[in-house]
């Protein structure tokens, strides 16, 4: 049966699959290949600008093993021919309890290939009052 998903959804979902599989297999420095040189990342409210700075942050996160589980992912095309993807899911780092997270990416196409220009990550743990 033909895949009837629009291209922007296929590309968004492929990116998500690639991003978290690289993240979870422990080779976080390879995530750098997915970001543009001038990309932005906001990690728990802290901003990082530039591929090297982003990779440095991702490779120095204080856990050895991590596993992401995607609960929902939404993709949309933008007026500038980019793709925005919003992910919500759960992650387990080392022996910590499972935590919810939210992440948003903007993907853009340059010279025929797709990369990430914007990335925002938040844990959901602070989002629930007693």
């Amino acid at each position: 049966m033909a895949d009837e998903r629009p291209d922007w959804q296929k590309i968004g979902e492929e990116f998500i699959q690639l991003y978290y599989s690289r993240f979870d297999t422990g080779n976080r420095s390879s995530l750098g290949e997915l970001y543009y040189q001038s990309a932005w990342m906001t990690w728990e409210g802290e901003m990082f600008h530039g591929k090297e700075v982003i990779v440095n942050k991702l490779t120095t996160l204080p856990f050895k093993t991590i596993q992401h589980n995607i609960t929902k992912q939404d993709c949309q095309p933008t007026p500038d021919n980019c793709i925005v993807v919003m992910v919500m899911g759960q992650l387990k780092a080392d022996n910590d309890p499972v935590m919810g997270f939210q992440q948003v990416f903007q993907l853009r196409n340059e010279l025929g290939s797709w990369g990430c220009s914007n990335d925002m990550f938040r844990l959901s743990i602070h989002n629930f009052g007693a």
Binding site: Y36, S38, W40, T42, G45, M47, T78, D80, C82, V84, M86, Q102, V104, Q106, R108, S117, N118, M120, R122, S124, H126, N127, F128, G129
Partner: peptide, 19 residues
């Protein structure tokens, strides 16, 4: 929590977490 970033096309990307 709310986060905002400039995009390469001079847009603003915003992410909100709330109740």
């Amino acid at each position: 929590a709310q986060d905002h970033q400039p995009t390469p096309d001079c847009c603003i990307l915003s992410m909100v977490v709330g109740q």
